[in-house]
């Protein structure tokens, strides 16, 4: 049986991908592509921009306008693309190190502008491409190759960060909750503004091994049993959500979108003539 989603939306001659066996990134990449496919967008109108890291290799496999930029800078490059051609559907694919450490400034300012870019962070809690160093989302106490005695940094809650900075759609799902990723990316793409979806991934090769999390199946089971939907969380007693994490839609609002506001300035001069 041929898989039409893959046939129609991937550069099949570039496959198989480079990710390790058990990595959650392929699942997330497919879920994003499924969202674009289900929305029926013309592939020529979709531009996928990434930075550097494991996640950022995804655009190379996806059959859209694709742009593999520098470490941390995907959102800044994407802002240039979106400003120049607001009619493009711009998607940024990034990782926890890429968007929360070296690219943190671009992340908060893209959110603040509410520019119409849908950002999906593949959060595997580690720098995978460079071999397992701790990242801004590595939980406090966990290990990485540069945190051999346990991470003493506090880890970021990226959704709270980005919501605080002004994003108009903020959601989280996991590589286990794959249909939820697709649904959230669809909502994000249809939101006229800055949309942020944290897709919690798994890295059995580095994060899992360093922290004795077991194999890929055990790590997937962890996502399944520890993710609590935000809709259910309110009704649950505190002890039931202790040590777990929330998924679902955290925030949605309508605010003026950056490129539309700029277009109004341009239009005001057209009227003047």
């Amino acid at each position: 049986m041929t898989n039409t989603l893959i046939e129609n939306n991937f550069r099949t001659n570039r496959l198989p991908h480079i990710w390790c066996s058990g990595c959650g990134h392929g699942i997330i990449m497919r879920a994003i592509t499924k969202a674009v496919d289900e929305l029926g967008y013309n592939k020529d109108d979709v531009c996928v921009v990434s930075g550097i890291g494991c996640s950022s290799r995804a655009p190379g496999y996806m059959d859209f306008n694709t742009f593999h930029t520098l470490h941390g800078r995907a959102l800044a490059y994407a802002t240039g693309v979106k400003m120049a051609k607001p009619e493009l559907k711009v998607i940024v694919v990034t990782g926890d190190g890429d968007c929360a450490a070296i690219g943190g400034n671009h992340l908060i300012h893209s959110a603040r502008r509410n520019i119409d870019i849908t950002t999906i962070v593949f959060n595997n809690n580690i720098y995978g491409m460079t071999g397992g160093q701790y990242s801004p989302t590595t939980p406090t106490g966990d290990k990485g190759t540069t945190a051999p005695f346990g991470n003493i940094d506090k880890n970021f809650d990226l959704c709270k960060l980005v919501q605080g900075a002004g994003a108009t759609y903020v959601a989280r799902s996991t590589a286990y909750h794959v249909n939820m990723i697709t649904q959230q990316v669809k909502t994000g793409l249809e939101n006229k503004g800055f949309s942020f979806i944290e897709a919690v991934s798994i890295c059995p090769t580095y994060y899992g091994r360093k922290n004795k999390k077991g194999d890929a199946v055990s790590m997937m089971n962890y996502l399944k049993t520890n993710a609590v939907n935000v809709k259910a969380a309110d009704k649950l007693p505190k002890e039931k959500i202790q040590g777990k994490f929330l998924i679902g839609e955290f925030y949605k609002s309508q605010e003026p979108e950056y490129t539309e506001e700029y277009q109004k300035i341009i239009d005001s001069f057209q009227k003047e003539r």
């Binding site: 800078r73 800044a76 802002t79 240039g80 693309v81 400003m83 051609k85 400034n105 671009h106 300012h109």
Partner: peptide, 17 residues
């Protein structure tokens, strides 16, 4: 942009668009 790095990055993005 938010910094000099972003200014240069956006210019490259704009040119490719």
């Amino acid at each position: 942009m938010e910094d000099e790095i972003a200014g240069m990055a956006a210019v490259i993005g704009g040119s490719l668009a």
